Amino acid sequence: MGHEARPVRQLWVEDEKGRRRVPDPVRRAAVRALLLISVTLIQAMVAFFCSVTGSWLAFPVTVTAVASTVVATWSVLDVWITRQVWRQRNGVVSEPSSAARGPRREKHREDRRPVTEAA
């Protein structure tokens, strides 16, 4: 009637192959874009409800919602551009592909061969 020691199962197990963290400039641009998009969606809802109720605020809120949509679209493009610039400046690892290695080896072998001159 002794109690056998059972192995304790962990509730949470860390995955060893985690994804790399997003670079800080890209993260900042993404947070800006998310905030602008959420404000734009709120403005669109307010414009819709003002239009439905026939409020005098419908026109000004609709105009600001349209302007905000343009700004939110630009902010999403800013995330993409910031990511591309960061990758171009910091993240590019130049490694030849396996398809490129064969022709490079052949070229190096040809360069090392002695050149015989026919006289």
Rank of each mutant, 00 (worst) to 15 (best):
Arg27Ala: 15
Pro96Phe: 03
Val52Thr: 04
Ser51Gly: 12
Thr82Asn: 02
Asp24Glu: 14
Ala47Trp: 01
Val92Ala: 14
Thr116Asp: 03
Arg112Ser: 14
Thr82Gly: 00
Pro60Asp: 06
Ala67Met: 13
Pro7Val: 09
Ser55Glu: 04
Arg87Val: 10
Trp86Leu: 03
Asp15Arg: 10
Gly18Asp: 07
Lys107Pro: 02
His108Arg: 15
Trp56Tyr: 06
Glu95Cys: 08
Pro103Leu: 03
Leu36Asp: 02
Met1Val: 07
Pro114Ala: 10
Phe59Leu: 09
Arg32Glu: 15
Thr62Pro: 00
Arg20Ser: 12
Val76Lys: 09
Arg105His: 05
Val70Asp: 02
Ser75Val: 01
Arg101Gln: 11
Glu14Lys: 03
Pro25Glu: 00
Phe49Glu: 01
Val63Ala: 10
Pro60Lys: 04
Gly2Glu: 05
Gln88Gly: 14
Val63Asp: 01
Ala44Lys: 02
Val22Gln: 10
Phe48Gln: 02
Thr73His: 00
Gln10Ala: 05
Val70Asn: 04
Ile42Trp: 03
Leu41Trp: 01
Arg20Ala: 14
Val46Cys: 08
Thr69Lys: 01
Lys107Glu: 13
Trp80Asp: 06
Gly91Cys: 11
Ala72Tyr: 00
Thr40Glu: 12
Thr82Cys: 09
Pro114Lys: 14
Met45Lys: 09
Arg9Phe: 10
Thr53Phe: 02
Val79Gln: 00
Thr40Ile: 04
Val70Tyr: 07
Val115Leu: 13
Ala33Gln: 08
Thr64Leu: 09
Pro96Asn: 07
Val13Asp: 05
His3Ala: 08
Arg6Thr: 09
Pro96Trp: 01
Thr40Met: 07
Ser38Asn: 13
Glu4Arg: 10
Ala119Trp: 13
Val26Arg: 02
Pro96Gly: 05
Asp78Gly: 06
Pro114Phe: 08
Ala29Asn: 03
Ser68Pro: 01
Leu57Asn: 09
Met1Asp: 00
Arg19Val: 10
Ala33Glu: 11
Arg6Pro: 01
Ala118Leu: 15
Ala5Cys: 03
Ala100Gln: 15
Ser55Asn: 13
Leu34Tyr: 12
Pro103Gln: 11
Ser38Met: 12
Leu11Ile: 11
Ser55Phe: 03
Val115Trp: 09
Phe49Trp: 07
Val52Pro: 00
Gln43Ser: 08
Arg28Ala: 11
Ser94Tyr: 13
Arg89Glu: 14
Glu106Gly: 14
His108Val: 04
Ala119Ile: 15
Leu36Ala: 06
Gly102Arg: 14
Asp15Ala: 13
Thr69Ala: 12
Ile81Tyr: 06
Trp12Thr: 09
Ser55Trp: 04
Pro23Thr: 06
Glu4Ser: 14
Arg113Phe: 04
Ser51Tyr: 00
Lys107Ile: 07
Thr64Ile: 13
Val79Tyr: 00
Gly18Phe: 15
Ser98Asn: 05
Arg109Asn: 12
Ala99Gly: 07
Val76Ser: 05
Gln88Leu: 12
Leu11Asp: 13
Gln10Phe: 06
Arg112Cys: 12
Thr116Glu: 11
His108Met: 11
Val13Met: 05
